[in-house]
Design a protein around this nucleic acid. Structure first.
Lengths: 117, 117
DNA sequence: GTTCGTACTGACAAAGGTGTCAGTAGGGAG
DNA sequence: CTCCCTACTGACACCTTTGTCAGTACGAAC
């Protein structure tokens, strides 16, 4: 089930990126940062994403210890995902990334190709 | 010349990741953070990377305004790359990423699979 | 008794990033 | 005259990630 970089690189930047990297992981984490959600809730909240991808990403996030999976084995199965205590240490990092990205987008929009510096 | 995500996503996290993402970009930036370097110097300093990849990544970094290309048109061509003023705004972000990654690697090594939470 | 919903899996095709290989120009060394 | 060095390009194969499609179990609703 390949979703992110296969082997664990000793480079810390790569290590961090391998956790975040994956087409929808950022979005999933973003949704979960508002509180626990069921699989189907998550899927419906990101319509462009397929269920297959959701599950593959969730499994990786769980494997990496970022997300917690809690199953109430009722008969229509009910699984709830939430950000783990460890996962919360990731959130400030995402915020830094997000801040830079926002600035980058502004720059990309504003300057078609003006000042480089 | 595909190296990173094709279309510009409106998501700031994706925007930032598209700048960093690429097998060798982190390493290249790391090397350049010690000062300007020639193409061949860079290539030799990262032996596992091919010249082709170096150049593709450098071109993207230049396109994104992170890296500056300075050509002295002497007869054996001499091109020097350096981190731009804008590129330096990225460095603290990389440091945050790196710090988290380092911690993550420690955790991954120490805990084969011990405490989750 | 067929259909719906849940959370998932497996097989497979389509995209896209990465790597390999050869080739470019022009001066210097041998 | 040939080879080496520089920085770079183009064609192409490979492999990983992404996406599509069908199928699983089980109970509840109709």
């Amino acid at each position: 089930m390949p979703v992110s970089k296969k082997e664990i690189s000793p480079c810390p930047i790569d290590a961090m990126l391998s956790v975040i990297d994956g087409r929808w992981k950022g979005t999933i984490l973003w949704r979960l940062s508002n509180g626990p959600m069921r699989t189907s809730e998550l899927r419906r909240s990101i319509p462009e994403m397929t269920e297959r991808m959701l599950i593959r990403h969730l499994q990786e996030l769980v494997r990496d210890g970022i997300v917690l999976r809690k199953q109430e084995s009722s008969v229509p199965p009910c699984v709830r995902y939430s950000i783990s205590k460890y996962g919360w240490t990731l959130v400030p990092v995402l915020e830094v990334i997000c801040a830079w990205g926002r600035n980058h987008l502004r720059r990309a929009c504003a300057a078609g190709r003006t000042a480089e510096n």
